[in-house]
Computed example of a mutant assay.
Amino acid sequence: MLITTPITAALLRGALDLERTAHGLLPHRLPARARAQSADGQLAMAESQPSGVRLALRTRATTVELDTLPTKRVYLGAPPRPDGVYDLLVDGRLTAQATLGDGNTVTVDLATGSAEHRTGPIGTVRFTGLPDGVKDVEIWLPHNETTELVALRTDAPVEPAPDRGRRVWLHHGSSISHGSDAASPSTTWPALAASLSGLELINLGLGGSALLDPFTARAMRDTPADLISVKIGINLVNADLMRLRAFGPAVHGFLDTIREGHPAAPLLVVSPIYCPIHEDTPGPGAFDFAALSTGKLRFRATGDPAERAAGKLTLGVIRDELARLVEQRRAEDPNLRYLDGRDLYGEADHAELPLPDGLHPDAATHRLIGERFAKLAAF
Rank of each mutant, 00 (worst) to 15 (best):
V317Y: 05
P276S: 07
A290S: 14
A194V: 09
I318P: 00
V317T: 14
M220A: 06
P284H: 05
G261H: 10
L236P: 07
G303L: 06
I234C: 07
N238H: 15
L315R: 01
H278E: 02
S209N: 15
R300F: 12
D333E: 14
L244V: 14
N235E: 10
Q328N: 10
F289M: 12
L204R: 08
G303I: 02
A290Y: 09
E279Y: 09
L241Y: 11
A301G: 10
D222S: 10
V230G: 06
K312W: 13
N235Y: 08
P224I: 08
D256A: 14
L313A: 04
R245S: 14
F289W: 10
A310D: 15
I232P: 01
S195H: 14
D226K: 00
I232Y: 03
E279D: 12
D333M: 06
R245H: 13
I318N: 03
L206N: 04
L255H: 04
S229F: 07
V251W: 01
P263M: 09
A290E: 15
T294G: 10
L255R: 01
G285C: 03
R330Q: 15
L313T: 03
I273L: 12
V230L: 09
I277A: 13
P334E: 09
T314K: 04
R243A: 09
V251E: 00
H262Y: 00
A265G: 01
L325I: 13
G233C: 07
L212N: 07
G253F: 00
M242D: 09
T223Q: 01
R330E: 10
F215T: 13
L196Y: 08
T314M: 03
I202Y: 02
E307K: 14
I202W: 02
A331H: 15
D304E: 12
F299H: 10
L199N: 01
D226P: 03
G248H: 11
I273F: 12
R308I: 14
G207F: 11
P284V: 04
D213F: 13
L244Q: 14
L322P: 01
D256N: 12
H278A: 14
G248M: 11
L268G: 02
A217I: 09
A331L: 13
G248P: 06
A310C: 12
A306V: 13
A264P: 00
G295K: 08
L204A: 09
I202G: 02
T216F: 12
D320M: 08
I277V: 13
F247E: 03
L268C: 02
